[in-house]
Design a protein around this nucleic acid. Structure first.
Lengths: 139, 139
DNA sequence: TTGCGTGCAAAGGTTTTGCATGGCA
DNA sequence: TGCCATGCAAAACCTTTGCACGCAA
């Protein structure tokens, strides 16, 4: 592993991800959020910092369903998010961590019977959450 | 629905998708594949044709796990691919259509107990297929 | 003939790279 | 002091849009 310096920018980016760990954030959202707090971090730096954090395993990288940009999310407890699936609402963008027996069973089943090892650090189930489902019904 | 002309290009793009319906193809791959066959179709046209085919429901659009580009796949039997999940191997890119009781159960379970309606036209389970798993073990 | 389709060029958005400078250890 | 980090500018990609011309029906 490469040496890493603790710079002001790195700390800012990491803090931002930590305080938004329930969400998926794009690089641009991080830059804007920091700007709101009066901190200016170059976009290049954000990208490079994220790259390193992902390599270190402290942050996870996802693809937004629109495919327009990558999303990042802090992983507080290493291994914690590996035991469950993520559901993401395509309407409101809400991210749900779902730890559930059924999902673990599913993984095992797919591996046992279909010989496919699902990687749920890469997998996101897209769909519609309860609230947005209700809204949708009213339309 | 808008009127649609049957042009040479549209036919070429559709044929290409049909003969590769077991795979996810990017717009660029389609252009290159057609070139190999001595057919030149402008990239703009490919994008516009794909857009229409997706709107017609004959082709489905996915996001590649790298997030770099969109992937397209022909849906032969309308509704056929709505009843199952897709597994995609992150190593070799192989796409597996998995129709399985367990997955339907999963959907129902998530909906019943977690009030989340999974949209499996958007969801792809990423992981490692049997062959690539074996290769990986040898490393 | 009508109006959708085509493809070049250019624009738009995200991410990466080059390079000179800045700053941690 | 040695190296990594930073950030501007520019490049690299993927995708969309504008526009003049082509072609299906």
């Amino acid at each position: 592993m490469q040496k890493t310096y603790n710079t002001k920018q790195r700390t800012q980016v990491l803090d931002c991800l930590i305080s938004n760990s329930e969400k998926h954030m794009t690089a641009d959202e991080i830059v804007r959020r920091l700007e709101e707090q009066g901190v200016n971090v170059g976009k290049t730096t954000v990208y490079r910092t994220l790259e390193k954090l992902v390599a270190e395993g402290r942050v996870r990288k996802y693809i937004s369903e629109e495919g327009k940009s990558a999303c990042f999310q802090y992983v507080d407890d290493k291994g914690h998010c590996e035991q469950h699936f993520h559901l993401k609402c395509v309407e409101c963008g809400k991210l749900i961590h779902l730890k559930c027996e059924h999902l673990t069973q599913l993984e095992n089943h797919v591996f046992e019977h279909h010989r496919f090892k699902v990687d749920n650090t890469k997998t996101v189930l897209y769909g519609v959450c309860e609230e947005c489902g209700k809204k949708g019904d009213k339309k």
